[in-house]
Simulated assay, not measured.
Amino acid sequence: MAIRDAAVKLFGSKGFEQTSLREVADAVGITKASLYYHYPSKLDLLLAIIDPIIDHMRSVVDDIDAVPHDAEGIRAVLRAYLRGMIRHRDAGALCIRDTVAILNAMADRYPDLKDSNQTLRVWLAGPGASPEAELRACAAMEVIGVALTSKEFVPAADDALVESTLLDAATCVLTACGTR
Rank of each mutant, 00 (worst) to 15 (best):
M1D: 01
I3S: 07
A7P: 13
A7I: 02
K9H: 15
L10M: 02
G12R: 13
K14P: 11
G15C: 14
G15H: 09
Q18G: 08
Q18T: 14
S20Y: 01
L21D: 12
R22K: 09
E23D: 08
V24I: 07
A25Y: 09
D26V: 07
A27G: 02
V28Q: 03
V28W: 01
G29P: 03
G29C: 01
I30P: 08
Y36H: 04
Y36R: 01
Y37W: 11
H38Y: 11
P40K: 15
S41T: 15
K42L: 05
L43S: 09
D44F: 05
D44R: 10
L47N: 05
I49R: 07
I49P: 02
I49W: 07
D51A: 05
P52F: 02
V60I: 14
D63N: 03
I64T: 08
I64N: 09
D65Y: 09
D65R: 07
A71G: 10
E72H: 05
I74S: 00
R75E: 15
A76F: 07
L82H: 04
M85S: 13
I86L: 08
R87T: 14
H88R: 09
R89M: 07
D90R: 04
A91L: 00
A93W: 08
R97I: 06
D98N: 08
T99M: 12
V100I: 15
L103P: 10
M106D: 06
D108W: 07
K114F: 13
K114R: 04
D115H: 14
S116M: 07
T119K: 08
L120D: 00
V122I: 04
V122P: 11
V122M: 03
P127H: 12
G128Y: 06
S130Q: 05
S130N: 06
P131N: 05
P131Q: 14
E134L: 14
A137E: 09
A137H: 13
A137P: 14
A139C: 00
A139T: 14
A139G: 11
A140F: 01
V143K: 04
V143T: 06
V143L: 00
V146Y: 13
T149I: 13
K151V: 01
F153Y: 10
A156R: 03
D159E: 06
D159H: 05
V162Y: 01
S164W: 10
T165V: 10
T165K: 00
L166Y: 12
C172E: 14
L174R: 01
T175L: 09
T175Q: 03
G178Y: 04
